[in-house]
């Protein structure tokens, strides 16, 4: 019983990590209908920049939380600039292009960012200093650390904040207008380019936060970390219904739970024939089954197809 509870906690934490990254995917997709494949790399850059700032300040005698805050701010700023740059250079000129063209530039941007990061931060893995208190707590039989608790709350906070932004502010209304019908939005006096640029910058800021939280949890960063995380988060976003904020959260948590329960119980369920090496098969199988019955994800409202 303890094992089951622990697996659920594990899945929740892992799922929150996915959800944080998935929110960035979904936000851009919701407005532009475009998969920003470079999002995972922005997460990586966020983590790497934070690492550099922390390494710079760690011996300065400042309190650890302040250092973390400074690194968070700097990494958010860098990532926002990066997000703006990516949109401006790789996506904006292609808004009227065939649907797959921005996909290829996105792949190009990922490769470029990865290799720049490799040149800049080196090929090796880096330790991410633990600045946050990270004690373990018992939660009726299951163990959870403070950073993990923080991750769950940050993910929820991000989603709540985005929902508020989308539905309670002028900017949010403009964003929804652009998503609904860009040409009508222009006629209503919405600055489309501005709104899209802000969307990207917001998404990238979320990526920076996610990058730092992920690194703080696992304590290890590498220039390659973005790609696999991005892929998982993208899967989560689709599972929940890409373009939908709540969907990203639900999809992320669900994927996390599927993975951890799959890894934990797949062996017992299949009588020892399959083991935890089929964890991803299990996850994709659930995804495919969900999509067969709900072709646009769990909470997706519309069939996402750009003409």
């Amino acid at each position: 019983m303890d094992t089951l509870l622990q697996q659920i906690v594990n899945g929740f934490v892992q799922g929150s990590v996915y959800a944080m990254v998935a929110l960035g995917y979904t936000m851009v997709y919701g407005i532009l209908g475009l998969i920003n494949f470079a999002h995972g790399e922005v997460v990586m850059v966020g983590a790497m920049v934070a690492l550099s700032v922390i390494q710079l300040l760690i011996d300065s005698g400042l309190p650890p939380l302040l250092i973390l805050l400074i690194s968070l701010i700097i990494s958010i700023v860098v990532c926002m600039a990066l997000g703006y740059g990516i949109e401006r250079i790789a996506y904006r000129p292609l808004r009227n292009a065939p649907r797959l063209a921005p996909l290829i530039t996105a792949i190009g941007v990922s490769i470029v960012l990865q290799n720049l990061a490799m040149m800049f931060w080196g090929r090796e893995y880096h330790a991410f200093p633990s600045l946050l208190p990270n004690n373990s707590h018992m939660l009726s039989g299951a163990i959870i650390t403070e950073v993990q608790i923080l991750i769950v709350f940050v993910a929820l906070g991000m989603m709540g904040g985005l929902l508020l932004l989308m539905h309670r502010t002028r900017l949010g209304r403009a964003m929804r207008a652009v998503a609904e019908n860009p040409s009508a939005a222009v006629l209503m006096g919405v600055n489309i380019n501005g709104v899209i640029a802000i969307t990207f910058m917001l998404g990238s800021a979320l990526a920076a936060v996610a990058g730092i939280m992920v690194s703080a949890n696992y304590g290890i960063v590498h220039y390659y970390m973005g790609s696999i995380l991005g892929l998982k988060a993208f899967t989560a976003a689709v599972l929940g219904g890409i373009g939908n904020m709540r969907g990203a959260m639900v999809g992320g948590l669900l994927l996390g739970l599927i993975e951890s329960l799959g890894a934990g119980y797949i062996g017992d369920l299949s009588g020892g024939f399959l083991g935890s090496h089929y964890q991803d098969v299990f996850a994709f199988f659930v995804l495919i089954s969900v999509l067969i019955f709900r072709p646009s994800g769990l909470l997706g409202e519309r069939v996402a197809e750009r003409a």
């Binding site: 622990q6 594990n10 892992q14 990590v17 390659y224 934990g264 991803d280």
Partner: peptide, 21 residues
Amino acid sequence: TREYTTDKAVDFTAVLTSIKG
């Protein structure tokens, strides 16, 4: 028990939990 992961993973809590059992 024999459990598995991948050479890209960073989260092993699920397999470690089932090993703990």
